[in-house]
Nucleic acid binder design. Structure first.
Lengths: 237, 237, 237, 237
DNA sequence: CATGAATGAGCCTTCATTCAT
DNA sequence: GATGAATGAAGGCTCATTCAT
């Protein structure tokens, strides 16, 4: 499994060794599941191979997960609470909803470009279990509502807007992650522009927002307990 | 498997009993595969169950399809050459690309509303095998290009526009087919509006086009009386 | 299937086109079976593939052979009555039993060198059905008896001698046909020498006989009916 | 499966119940495979039947052997390390290569006489997998080389000699095991005589060596009383 | 006679899951 | 809590054979 870009990678590896043994074993199993999901696809991953990659036995897997589906769910939760949350946090300080939307779209496109394996994993897991998609959806929905309140967007219905945003961007991300876009950044910008236009923005402004460079990742506030961080993230939306 | 609306159903069921034996069996197997795909999902469908539903043995299946994937392909081709072609033909006489695009989007949304099972089947098969999606994609792409030539659309790139159209509409269709849209028609209209806006149309015109009623299905082949058919088409909406 | 050396090839192809239709179809099936046996091995050959190679259907195969095993038997008979008989005839005029034995051993070794595929086929068919091996065995046995009568050989028992001759030469032939003998002719000569020594011959004379070049194949007496020929061949033994 | 003669049987059955569970199951599977190989032939043996005979499910078989061929290999190794090794050890103290060769030939002939089933099994397994044959071959080859060094044998090539020894004796053993030799011992002696003559020995000495009675099996490991064992060995002949 | 579609038993293999240790 | 052997229900696929046409 290729490494994630640095600012995301650091989010994934916080304090595994500090966990109590039970949690540590569980975390190792999730890591192994991620590897196997990536290598074989979520549908083709077998529990025996996950156990083997984790250096454990199938029995151990069943001490932590009652069923195969629970593993997929756990991976979904894990991705949501590390990778996706980290991305969401990365533009917590941006207050313009249109800008936030543009960043959100482009950040996942960027991930598809630099870490296609992780992106395909997210897409697969989203498809297999609802929780991960819902998680991302929630973040997106609050930006959409904010944009409507700020009169940056004008849409006939929230649901239609969500279908536009999610459907179109997922298509773009998939294309990029599969290496089907010769110039991934150009494709991402173009798709983001079309989405913003669809949301009711002026075409020129849509293009400008979509073209703006992504903000840097902020440093992880190192020692703070995880509970505090997720609480503040929730408040920020 | 619930019946399709009349104008589509008649396209699917033409003259099975007139086929030579081999083709007839093959057609029966494809029908059985469609049932099982719908009931269990394409990924979970087993050849044994397809055979059983078709009233045959697994050996017979393998006389017609060398592998499981060939069945999926055959179903894809069958859907493309009956269902999808029929839909495409239904607005062959429309010359305004924007109108064509609106009809295409809304026609599949309509299908999702009146035949959610068939729609979910198409979505699944599209996901499993490339041929069906490509088929629809080609049709859509030529409308897009026509719209650009006619200066109805203005898009930064064809690929981005296709991701917008396909991604967003697929999301809308899925929502409708799953029964998640309280007012399916309103949702379809809203999504189509957003897509057309994204393609560069004036918001008001986008809304107008998306709201316009779908044209009736044209008569298929000669002998049948036209009146009956258009009546049933009207009823289906 | 690589061609046989000329003098044998001509024996295989006599008058197929002259046969009545039923016999011609049967002959074609046997040819197809030989091809498939060679390509896949006798055990792995399927009737469907034989039929396909013959350009026929499985039903036709069963019009000529009641069971799979009958095909193997038919191939065995066919090999015996063409290939092997032709080899046996090739030294019909030799009267010294020791010389005949040497020629027999070396001729099959030669076949293994120049036509390993045919040889491996013979070995496989011999193993699968008794008739072919028995056929060759008969020819060999009469030479052995002649040698004993001529006091060229001295053996404690006919059976032991046959096991010596057949077992040892089969091992040598297999080695040659598999390409495991760097110098096939030297290996053939050496093995033949040891066998002749085992049969009681003077070591030096054994070596001389085993080293002597093989006689040329005699021309096929073209127009003579097959019945006459096999009769005379039988008398010659 | 008929029992082996006592001195061999005791080698096969040492301490199964003392093995750790995994090894015990594996041993049971190998025993079951041997039974099925004997009953149906190696080529026709199915994993399902092996599992059933072992009182297990097919899944269990695959916990121990990744593929059908691995079972054959395991049986080959098992036969080599018990049956064949025991035979080889039985004349470890004989130093004359010619005598060793005679004993080796005759010991396997004896096995064919008293345990035709086991012998046919060995022949089949040897044919299916190289390891068992190579094992025996190595032992035989060192005797051959020793005999050449001791100037008991004179052969044009090692390979030819090996083909003579193995080919001829395999033929004799097969005949005996199939019950085709009215007097198995006489046939064994005769064949061994011919082989030794082929290897360059004086006919009379060859006959003498081949006729000499086989040495008794030596005691296996310490504690068992020697008297019982030699008695049973004598009885077995 | 030939056709070839259909059969059905059977094979190898995989894998989620259980459970005694 | 971990182990890992065992399970058993499937699944995909092959193939000798039959039989109506």
């Amino acid at each position: 499994m290729p490494a994630l870009p640095a600012p995301l990678a650091e989010a994934l590896l916080t304090g595994h060794e500090r966990l109590p043994k039970r949690e540590r074993t569980r975390a190792q199993l999730i890591q192994a599941a991620i590897q196997v999901f990536s290598a074989r696809g979520v549908a083709q991953a077998s529990i025996q191979e996950i156990a083997q990659v984790a250096g454990m036995t199938t029995g151990t897997v069943y001490n932590h997960f009652a069923t195969r589906e629970e593993i997929v769910d756990a991976v979904a939760v894990w991705l949501a609470t590390t990778l996706c949350r980290r991305i969401d946090q990365s533009y917590a300080q941006v207050t313009d909803a249109a800008e936030r939307m543009a960043i959100g779209l482009r950040r996942y496109q960027w991930l598809a470009e630099v870490s296609p394996h992780w992106t395909l994993l997210i897409l697969q897991v989203s498809h297999a279990t609802p929780s991960l998609a819902e998680n991302i959806r929630d973040f997106c929905l609050s930006d959409l509502r904010m944009g409507v309140r700020q009169e940056r967007f004008a849409v006939p219905s929230e649901e239609a807007a969500m279908d536009l945003i999610f459907g179109a961007n997922q298509a773009a991300i998939t294309r990029i992650a599969l290496g089907l876009a010769p110039d991934p950044q150009a494709h991402g910008i173009a798709t983001a522009t079309l989405i913003l236009r669809g949301l009711g923005m002026d075409p020129e402004e849509a293009r400008t927002l979509a073209t703006r460079p992504l903000p840097e990742f902020t440093a992880l506030s190192a020692p703070a307990p995880a509970a505090r961080r997720s609480a503040s993230a929730r408040r920020a939306r």
